[in-house]
């Protein structure tokens, strides 16, 4: 187990380093001058020079890369070019929106998907199964941003129950803040739930086919008991794997959903930063996201090893 973890950690570090190089190189060649963007069409050349010097953009690329990596290693993420504030501060502000949003969506999708998947498996081949499978297929096929738009149309504009978008800030109280996050969380959760329900159903069906389940059934154990004691723990293995993968999708989906709902989360921050050529923010956030995804995958692998009830090496 230790050897496994060390190997995975080394591989994680390597991937992270590759990510920094990839991001830096890509951003170096992207056209667009942040100084020109900030000062606009009437700026004079000497003013632009002054601003570029102030932003540190006049130094050679390798120097800037070294400074960036040095800063990352010591926890200094640098200062945003457009907002003129430490990136760490900006990220922290956005995380208090994106993390509850992703967790809420994850909880909602799990709560929706696990019972649906179990239900479908237990009704295998019958109407209930077909209904869940249809939901699964539709949930995957419908574009997420379209679903989000329809939610706004129904719940914000027609019914007027929930705000159409925006975020009042946690300082405005938990009620308004959670209200603002409800529709986005649903928009994120439903497509994920569709995938998860399918995986759960398939995993349960696979497990039901295993010999020990047949044996348990043959020994006269009740259907419920078999499901709870044998099937579910085993079926959880692929489900947890998908949950881990979904976190990456949730982060990606958050970029789009946060834009539709005008939520000032991490996804919107990076999307806007790309447009504003705030390269400091883009490279930091992209690398942080990549690190996060890789770390989640590592955790999933570890969880995998921990919950898999089958003997080691049987895979």
């Amino acid at each position: 187990m230790t050897a496994f973890l060390v190997r995975r950690l080394l591989s994680l570090a390597f991937t992270a380093w590759l990510a920094t190089v990839a991001v830096f190189v890509v951003l170096e060649v992207v056209p667009g001058d942040p100084a020109l963007l900030m000062l606009g069409t009437e700026a004079r050349p000497d003013t632009l020079e002054a601003l570029r010097a102030q932003l540190g953009l006049d130094r050679p690329a390798p120097v800037r890369y070294a400074e960036w990596i040095g800063g990352l290693l010591t926890g200094d993420l640098g200062v945003s070019v457009t907002y003129n504030r430490p990136v760490a501060e900006l990220v922290a502000e956005r995380l208090v929106i994106t993390v509850p949003l992703a967790l809420g969506a994850l909880a909602l999708s799990t709560l929706l998907a696990l019972p649906l998947g179990l239900f479908a498996a237990s009704r295998h081949g019958r109407a209930g199964d077909w209904a869940v499978m249809a939901f699964g297929q539709l949930g995957i096929a419908v574009p997420g941003f379209w679903f989000a738009i329809l939610l706004i149309l129904v719940f914000a504009v027609e019914l007027g129950w929930l705000p159409a978008g925006g975020f009042p800030g946690w300082s405005a109280g938990a009620g308004p803040a959670l209200t603002a996050l409800l529709l986005p969380a649903v928009a994120l959760a439903v497509p994920e739930a569709a995938i998860l329900a399918r995986v759960t159903r398939a995993a349960v069906l696979d497990t039901l086919r295993e010999d020990y389940v047949r044996t348990a059934r043959a020994k006269g154990l009740g259907r419920r008991a078999v499901l709870g004691r044998h099937v579910l723990p085993n079926a959880l293995v692929p489900v947890v794997t998908i949950l881990g993968l979904q976190f990456a999708f949730l982060v990606g989906g958050a970029v789009v959903v946060e834009n539709v709902f005008q939520l000032p989360g991490l996804g919107r921050l990076v999307y806007q930063a790309v447009g504003q050529r705030d390269l400091v923010v883009v490279r930091d956030v992209v690398v942080l996201l990549a690190l996060f995804v890789v770390a989640v995958n590592l955790l999933v692998d570890a969880a995998h090893a921990a919950i898999d009830p089958r003997p080691r090496g049987a895979a």
């Binding site: 991937t15 590759l18 990606g252 890789v294």
Partner: peptide, 22 residues
């Protein structure tokens, strides 16, 4: 394997946005 890991580390939408920006 690492190359694939690297691409998977970035959310696909983000990769696409970055690449088309480039």
């Amino acid at each position: 394997a690492r190359g694939a890991d690297l691409l998977f580390a970035f959310p696909a939408v983000l990769t696409a946005i970055l690449l088309t920006a480039l």
